[in-house]
Nucleic acid binder design. Sequence first.
DNA 1: AGATTACCTTGAATTAAATTCATATCAGGA
DNA 2: TCCTGATATGAATTTAATTCAAGGTAATCT
Lengths: 303, 303
Amino acid sequence: MIELRHLRSLAAIADTGKLVHAASQVHLTQSALSHQMRALEEHYGAALFQRTGAGLRFTPAGQRLLQLARETLVAVADAERDLLRLKGDAGGDLRIALECHTCFDWLMPVMDAFRGRWPEVEVDLLAGFHSDPLALLQSGKAELVIGSQKPRGRDYVALPLFRFEILAVLPVEHRLRAKRRIEAADLKGETLITYPVPEERIDLIRQVLKPAGIKLTRRTAELTVAILQLVASRRGIAALPNWGVRNYVDLDYVIARRIGAKGLWSDLHAVVPRALAGRPYVTEFVDIIRSKCAAGLDGIELL
Amino acid sequence: MIELRHLRSLAAIADTGKLVHAASQVHLTQSALSHQMRALEEHYGAALFQRTGAGLRFTPAGQRLLQLARETLVAVADAERDLLRLKGDAGGDLRIALECHTCFDWLMPVMDAFRGRWPEVEVDLLAGFHSDPLALLQSGKAELVIGSQKPRGRDYVALPLFRFEILAVLPVEHRLRAKRRIEAADLKGETLITYPVPEERIDLIRQVLKPAGIKLTRRTAELTVAILQLVASRRGIAALPNWGVRNYVDLDYVIARRIGAKGLWSDLHAVVPRALAGRPYVTEFVDIIRSKCAAGLDGIELL
DNA sequence: AGATTACCTTGAATTAAATTCATATCAGGA
DNA sequence: TCCTGATATGAATTTAATTCAAGGTAATCT
C-alpha cells in the first residue's frame, strides 16, 4: 500500500535524478530507496523508471505517480501550515542578510513565494553591505544569513542550499578565448572586476589566485550588469556565477570559461540560530530556495 | 511524520464516528487506531479529537487534517486508476442484478458516479425480476448481485454494504397509530402490500410473521409510490425501508413504526465471483455505494 | 584494453516502528 | 451502583522498513 514516504522519495528522485542524491535528501540510504521503488513497482505491476547508466528516467506510470506526489505533498504542507496557524505558532521574524551579492538574483521570487505561504512571518532583507554577516546573527539583527561561510559554534546551524559554478568571464576577443579551462597562471597581468567587498570574500582570489601567489589589479562595480559591461569593453575580467552570465554568453556579449580542471564551485548555506532551525517556516524558506533555484538557475547542484 | 495510513484512519473515524468501527474498516484493531491518533496528536502538539463517552468528535485541527485526508485519498485513488489504465487493466464488465426492489432508489446515482470514474468498465443493470439472482452469477449472466442473501460456496464473496431498517407503514388514522412498536400479533387481519416477489423474499414475512404463525392477505404493486398510495388509501399496510418512507411520513401522507423491540433490519451485500472481488473497479463500486448511501440515506448503518 | 568511476540492485541482517493483546479507565444510562 | 459501550495504555509481538555489504553494469578516462 502506497504511503507518503514513497511519494516523498519519488519527488526527491525527480528533483535529483539520482538515487544517491535523492536518498540524502530524504535522509535514507540509496539502498533503501532502491528497495522502496522496487516495492512500488511490484505493487502496481508496472515499471516506474527506466534505469539508465546515469540515473533514473521516469516512465509514464512513474510520471503519473510523481504528479500525485507533487499534488499531495503540497496539500500536506498546506495542511500542516494551517495546523500551526490554529495553534497560533505560525508567526515570527525572518530578517535575512546576504553574504553574496549574487544571491539577490534569485532571492526576490523566493521571498514572494514565501510571503504568500507564511503571511504571519515578517520577512525582511537587510540592506547594505555587511563585513561580517554571521555577526548579525549573534547580535540579533538577523535571523538568517545566506552565504558560503559555515558558522563557528554549535549555536548556529548551516542548512545546505546548493552549489554553483563560478566562471571566468572574458571579453569576446580575449587572448585566452581559445582555452577551455583557465588556470590561475593564465590570469597574470589581468585586471579583476569584482563587487566592492574585501578580498577574502572573493572566491577566485581566496581559492585560486592567492594559493598560486598571484595578485591582480582590482576594480569594483556594484551591479552585475556593470561588471559585465566593464568586461565586455575590455577593462578587465570577472568571475561570476554560471547562471548570472549565461544570457550574456548566449548573446555573444562576453565569453565564460571554467576555472581549473574541476571548476571553481561555491557552496551556499542558510545559517540560522539553532533554536530556529526546526521552525517549519524556516525549513520551508530553505525548501523554497532550493526548489526555486533548482528550477530556475542553470547548472546548479542541490546540496 | 504523517503517512497516508493516518489519513486513511482519520477518514474512517470520520465516517463511523467510533474507533472500533473505523478500526474494522481499515483492518486494524481499536487499539492501533488509538495509538495512531495519539501519535499524530503528539506530533502536531494539538488535540485532533474531543473524546466523548460516545465516540470522537473532531476538533478544528482534526477537521483540517480530515480535509487533507479527503483530498489526498481521492487524489491517490485517481492516480491508481490511471496507473491501471496505463497498463490497460481498467476495463471489464459489470452486470448488476438486484435482489431487492428498493435498491433502485439509490443505485442510479451510484452508477453515474462509477461510470464517470471507470469509463472503460461496461456497467449494466439487469432488468426484470429474477427468482434466484445468485444463479445469474453462476450462469455468467451477471457479475454482481446486490441483496441480503449470502452466497453458498466459496467461489463467491459477499462484500458488505450496509444495513437498513424496515418500518411498518400504516395509513395515518390506522388503529395501531398509537403504538411506538408494532409486534407480529398486532398485524393479524391486515392486508400486506408488497412488491410482486415470492414470500420468502419479503423480510417481514420470513422473519416476523411466519415465525409467529401469522399469515396475511397479500396484494402487490410494482412501484414504491404505488405501494404508498395503496397504504395511504387504507387498502393495507406495507413494510418499507426507512429512507424510502421518510419523505412521505414528513408530509403526513402515511405513518411509519418500528417493527418489534429492536426493529427489523436487513443487511445488504454485493456478491461477486471470488475472481472479481479484488479488481479495483469492483472495490471502488462497493466503496461508492457505501459512501453515497451513508451520505444520502437516512438511518442506515455501514457494515 | 584495462582501470576507474558513478551509478543501481540484491539478499541477509538489523533496527525501528506499528500493531496486537490484555487490561485499565472512563462516562452515561438503567 | 452496576452494566454497557466507549477509548487509553503498556508491554509483548509482529511486521515492515532500513541498512550493510557485496555484486553488477555501463560509461569514461588513460
